[in-house]
Write a protein that binds this DNA or RNA. Structure first.
Lengths: 212, 212
DNA sequence: GTAGCGTTGGCAGGTTGTTGCCAGCCGTTG
DNA sequence: CAACGGCTGGCAACAACCTGCCAACGCTAC
């Protein structure tokens, strides 16, 4: 563990849980941005020590989380239970904010153990909060985005499977009974939902989200 | 659990462990083919019930497992301890064979719970064994392949990072101080090591192996 | 000092992918 | 029944990628 006054960097989910697990006990205003459903769930205790539910929960995700029907269903369930969920096509830094007082920023997960910055300095917290608010305002309500992406979702598994098989677009299109232009339209829509600018990146992203 | 006489299909690692965990106790001739290091480790008990080590262990992997230095080091350790390890560029069906008597074939892991076929019918076991032997003979000794891939491995993380960033080859090449032809040579080598025929497939594979 | 070998990188031809354009088709609405 | 809107799919221009070819360079051995 490294400390620099109001910013503490911890490495790995265990250290993060030890450091921040208690924050869930009394939080009333929770805001988070994540690339998938798991990023912040590791910090949250799931036993009897979990107290009352926060008064306000806001969650901001990338569209890719809606490509998996079960994940989409889970998010709808959360929304039905009172959580406010929005979707943003923009790149987001994975962040969680407790009561506008404590911020945790997730570091790069590409290699080895992930680092998390736990920030309590109020000026910094305020800055991160305002960035979150801007991203939140630009987001689209879950229900609205879900309706838009429903069509993509029905075909997404087959397209992902075909993309993952390594075959050419022409072959994949024929397999689905589509013209190659239409197949490529669908692929472009998936790339957008995954927030990817290349097919390699889309492949990585799809695997991370478990949709391939 | 579904049964068809000498072939039993189980779903998920827990059922597999319950069904096949005991096989490790007295096995003396073990042969397996896997895409990563974890596929068959879930079936193996790790406590005191594990008896003596098999007399012969043969493991066949795809080259991608050597892209990660720590995975490569682990495999070298296994080889040093007496296991015979070979690498094959060909597609392999994940298989494990106990004493030429019992075979387990891993099913598709793309979605949901993975199915495993546990086969005891001797004709089928013999057939699978001979397929394994053919693939084994075509494989390359770990040490030989490792030496060949060492060069690729040093640059692989940077290339994966750049590929994963979604930027163009020209940009990535400049970032690494290489010509775009040379960069594309390295990418082609990585694609081969990953057994991928498209960049999307390579992205998926790289993420599965944890090298991006 | 020279020959041989391996690698790099520029060039180029071919393939694959990205996206715009537009004709045709189908379903809906007035 | 006609008009309209949306979607499909063929075509095409362009971009990005894939791989062969070859000159140049650096290193090693003799």
């Amino acid at each position: 563990m490294e400390t620099t006054g109001d910013v503490v960097v911890v490495r790995g989910e265990e250290e993060l849980f030890a450091r921040a697990g208690h924050l869930w006990e009394h939080v009333s205003d929770l805001a988070c941005a994540a690339n998938d459903l798991y990023t912040w769930s590791v910090t949250r205790p799931s036993g009897p020590e979990r107290q009352q539910r926060p008064e306000r929960i806001r969650k901001l995700y990338r569209p890719g989380v809606l490509l998996d029907p079960s994940t989409a269903q889970h998010l709808r369930g959360l929304a039905d239970s009172g959580a406010e969920i929005r979707i943003t096509p923009d790149e987001i830094n994975e962040t969680i904010i407790f009561d506008r007082r404590i911020v945790i920023l997730a570091g790069d997960a590409s290699y080895g153990v992930r680092g998390y910055s736990v920030i309590t300095r109020q000026e910094v917290v305020a800055g991160v909060q305002s960035l979150f608010e801007a991203a939140w305002r630009a987001g689209t309500e879950l229900a609205v985005y879900d309706a838009q992406i429903a069509e993509i979702r029905t075909l997404a598994p087959r397209i992902m499977e075909l993309l993952g098989s390594g075959c050419k677009d022409e072959t994949a299109a024929r397999t689905l009974g589509l013209g190659v232009r239409t197949y490529r339209r669908r692929v472009a829509e998936l790339m957008n939902a995954l927030g990817a600018s290349s097919r390699f990146q889309a492949g990585v992203r799809a695997r991370e989200l478990g949709v391939v």
